[in-house]
């Protein structure tokens, strides 16, 4: 047995993504999902806010890390479903999908 730095890396993204999804996504559901349609929050103010580079960076973390959280969980579910014998292809598909989703998020955020 040897220390696995790869696993530590992927788990770090998983943990960070889980933390963000648990703590911040509910805030955005309230602020953007309910607050904006109800008129409690100004859409124009939100648009001004996301134009700031720090806000874009925040949005990138908010989208990307939960993608990797999701990928890590799905990877382990696939192992449990019997794909343990092919760890590399499963990991490439799962984390590759998270990476592609992150790139898509980058393009959306840059267009804001």
């Amino acid at each position: 047995m040897a220390r696995s730095k790869n696993e530590a890396f992927w788990w770090s993204l998983f943990a960070a993504g889980g933390g963000l999804a648990a703590m911040l996504v509910p805030v955005h559901i309230i602020v953007n999902g309910i607050g904006e349609p109800q008129g409690w929050v100004s859409p124009a103010g939100i648009r001004d806010l996301v134009a700031h580079p720090l806000a874009k960076l925040y949005l990138l973390a908010l989208f990307s890390l939960p993608f990797f959280h999701c990928a890590h969980r799905i990877r382990h579910i696939l192992y449990d479903f019997g794909l343990r014998g092919m760890p590399a292809p499963v990991a490439i598909v799962c984390y590759g999908a998270a990476l592609l989703s992150t790139l898509w998020a980058v393009s959306v955020i840059c267009s804001l």
């Binding site: 047995m1 220390r3 696993e7």
Partner: peptide, 15 residues
Amino acid sequence: RKEVVFSHEAVWECT
């Protein structure tokens, strides 16, 4: 201990 505890077969296997 960390060579064993931080190995693929130890903590990272736990879901």
